[in-house]
Design a protein around this nucleic acid. Structure first.
Lengths: 213, 213
DNA sequence: TAAGCGCCGTACTGGCCAGTAGTTTTTTCT
DNA sequence: AGAAAAAACTACTGGCCAGTACGGCGCTTA
């Protein structure tokens, strides 16, 4: 009996905890969403936490119960784009049945989609990374390096398999990363080109760089 | 006689003035050089003018006798990379005897060189443009647009002339601009790759994007 | 050498802002 | 209902920084 009661209590406590942590996650997300938008518009250093709080309809101490300080908010923002991209990259590369050309196409398409979706996060990351603490900076730099490394590997194998031109240096991985990162500086959601067109163009460009035609 | 005297006086005054304006130009240059370096390292908003002055061995009011305010210094920095690139672009395109392929190669090579030389200026421009006044912002944006437009035109003519693949959209001009702008985020002067190698790679990449092979 | 001028420095201010201490409100549990 | 705990707010501070008023020093000119 006591064990049943205990289990029930634990289960209930567990449910409560998870509900509570869902609330916390939700609020945390809202904060980085709004903060990202404001950092994007005004720049990290010239954006005050009072402003972020105002835009959320709360006050500054509220933010401090979810993040240690201003820099922690920035770190959370910077991590979004790169961690999602890395996740998609690894999920895509897991499919062993595809050709290297198909893999490259799919990776570029998926990551391009994420970069467009998370445009503001990506731009803030690119512009404001230098304000991160050394620890956060290194963690994010490692993710970025891992991304580039895996693309370079994909290129190398594709060249070996004869799918890409043999005079293709695996360093084009960095150039392809450049194409992807470049999108947010000129694409705007309501603009002339749809995100679909942009992604198609991106894929074409990446394939040309890889010599896969 | 009076006219000779006047001329002599004017000539002398002119020489003085030009010498003086050379001094002014020199000091102005030193300011944007040092400021660019500090804005590059710390970001525009978190870099104080006292710090800039310290690094020049002068004091803050000195800066205010050469620039109206902090933003004017930023504007001067932002203009360097793009105005030099535009000048080189137009000088290169003036050579009527070259093929479109040769013109594209030369433009990319020259602008790549400028971007590497002026790396810090270019990065500050990309990151901090949003802190410019509307007037400065527009002036610089127009230069940038003119650059992209002329590259697009070059691509279009090259396709027409049969030098580039016929399924090449002139929008690759923007992608090529992306490759060039991407260099400063990963190239470092003392690093593994020499600037010559980087530029060769850049040219190769640009030609592949244009379908000129 | 003395007067005049211009260049640069000293010293200040007014406002802004990250971060915090202590209080009030809301929720939870009995 | 009422107490205890959790969540959010009010109100403040200490330091920083763009921009400025004014003073002094050296340099020209006669």
């Amino acid at each position: 009996m006591s064990s049943i009661a205990t289990n029930a209590r634990e289960a209930s406590a567990g449910a409560n905890d998870s509900l509570k942590s869902e609330f916390v996650a939700f609020k945390t997300n809202r904060i980085i969403e709004v903060a990202s938008n404001l950092f994007y518009q005004r720049g990290y250093s010239s954006c005050t936490l009072d402003l972020v709080a105002d835009n959320l309809g709360v006050t500054k101490p509220f933010l401090y119960s979810y993040f240690k300080n201003k820099e922690a908010i920035l770190a959370a923002i910077c991590e979004v784009g790169i961690s999602e991209s890395l996740a998609v990259l690894e999920a895509t590369l897991a499919d062993e049945h595809k050709t290297h050309r198909a893999l490259l196409t799919e990776v570029v398409r998926q990551v391009g989609r994420i970069v467009i979706e998370r445009q503001e996060y990506v731009v803030v990351y690119q512009r404001e990374m230098k304000h991160l603490s050394a620890t956060d900076h290194n963690r994010i730099l490692r993710m970025r390096a891992s991304f580039d490394h895996q693309i370079a590997e994909l290129i190398r194998e594709g060249v070996e398999a004869g799918e890409f031109r043999e005079d293709t240096d695996s360093f084009v991985a960095v150039w392809i990363g450049g194409l992807i990162s470049w999108i947010p500086t000129w694409y705007s959601p309501g603009g002339q080109r749809s995100s679909g067109e942009v992604i198609d163009q991106l894929v074409t460009a990446a394939l040309r760089l890889a010599g896969a035609e």
